[in-house]
Design a protein around this nucleic acid. Structure first.
Lengths: 208, 208
DNA sequence: GGGGACTCTAAGCGCTCGCTCACCTTCGGC
DNA sequence: GCCGAAGGTGAGCGAGCGCTTAGAGTCCCC
């Protein structure tokens, strides 16, 4: 990731695409605040304060508080889809690709748990049009995972009763990592990624 | 469940223990509002309005808005723990008990998704003391599931690499049902419960 | 039928919210 | 050295928030 940067929290934050600098600082501050307290409990004064600016400065770069959430959500979902798509389209068996998809997707949710929490849990705070755009991205994520599982069934690697349900369960398992993962906990993002890849291979009947 | 009642949404709502009647109506209204919009986005006027009362009526039965969330959270977590404990302590093999625990826990999250959503996702909105009480209940839930898995390993039924991680993943999978399940979706709570019981047995290496 | 306990309401207090506006600085181009 | 654009500030508006208070209605016990 050429645009990745390190924040104070030690997370990978690919916000390099957001310019100018002040707009990026505000967006990063918003991600942290939304993740900590939730969208509705976060005030625009809090966001501006974290970015070292006055409350009014926020409105130079963003029309509303919701636009901030929308931008965060779109960037985050695009990144998530990119991760799954890369794993789905690499070379290898379906089992290798599924393990790759799960472990990298989980690493993203664990390592970037601040961003992931906002992206995955504040969807309902968006207005109807913004939410529709994000929901479309989610469906593409779903399709990538389902594609790998279908490939594995076709090749005889996997043994799955309910493709749709299993796809949903796999994504659900990964997404929920953002809820419980803590950097102070007993695992590193890599360890959770490896554990979950193993569990998911068992779920699709591909374990050795 | 002798105290269970049917709400307009068709959910099982075991709020019979809450008296008097006005206090229960307010609590049910609060559950619905918190589930739909989140704790912070819900106003006390909205809760009172749903219960057919004036805003001030809320404060006759509850000291603060947070007390409502606390009561909901405690009742819900107690019920969740009760479900897991019942499954864990019944007769049968570890596989049977685990399947029972998962399917009934999932049914509760799917069928009572309104309650479950509040219980599982609004924890951070509680104050420190209230949160500590709820976190203790959650740890007991974790212990029940871990107990079944450890039994299965001891009896040779299960093949698990990381007991703590697998326990967490099983609970995580079940809890996240409250996030995505919709009564308008393609599954009934029973179907999701059965699917998830199968997936979890695969995760612990107990599938036939 | 009088009095206290309980339940609920109308009105509104003090506060903080998202957001705006008038104004100030900084800076590159000519 | 002047100018307009861009980026910033302090003060504050209207609205809605959680919550309180004074008092009215209703019930039961005597």
């Amino acid at each position: 990731m050429s645009t990745a940067e390190e924040t104070a929290g030690g997370e990978v934050a690919p916000w390099g695409e957001v310019t100018p600098d002040a707009a990026r600082r505000l967006l990063v501050a918003a991600v942290e605040a939304f993740a900590e307290r939730g969208y509705h409990a976060t005030t625009t004064r809090d966001i501006a304060g974290r970015a070292g600016m006055s409350p009014a400065a926020l409105y130079i770069h963003y029309k509303t508080k919701e636009e901030l959430l929308h931008r965060i959500s779109r960037i985050g979902h695009t990144k998530a889809l990119d991760i799954l798509r890369t794993a789905a389209r690499r070379e290898g068996t379906a089992a290798e690709r599924l393990a790759d998809a799960v472990s990298s997707f989980v690493r993203w949710h664990a390592g970037g748990r601040t961003t992931a929490r906002v992206v995955q849990y504040e969807l309902d705070s968006l207005g109807p049009e913004a939410r529709a755009e994000i929901v479309a991205l989610r469906r593409q994520c779903d399709a990538e995972v389902r594609g790998i599982i279908e490939d594995g069934i076709a090749s005889g690697e996997f043994d799955v009763l309910d493709v749709k349900g299993t796809t949903l369960a796999v994504l659900s398992l990964c997404i929920d990592v953002a809820r419980w993962f803590s950097i102070d906990g007993p695992w590193t993002p890599d360890e959770v990624g490896a554990l979950y890849a193993d569990l998911v291979l068992r779920m699709v009947g591909a374990s050795k």
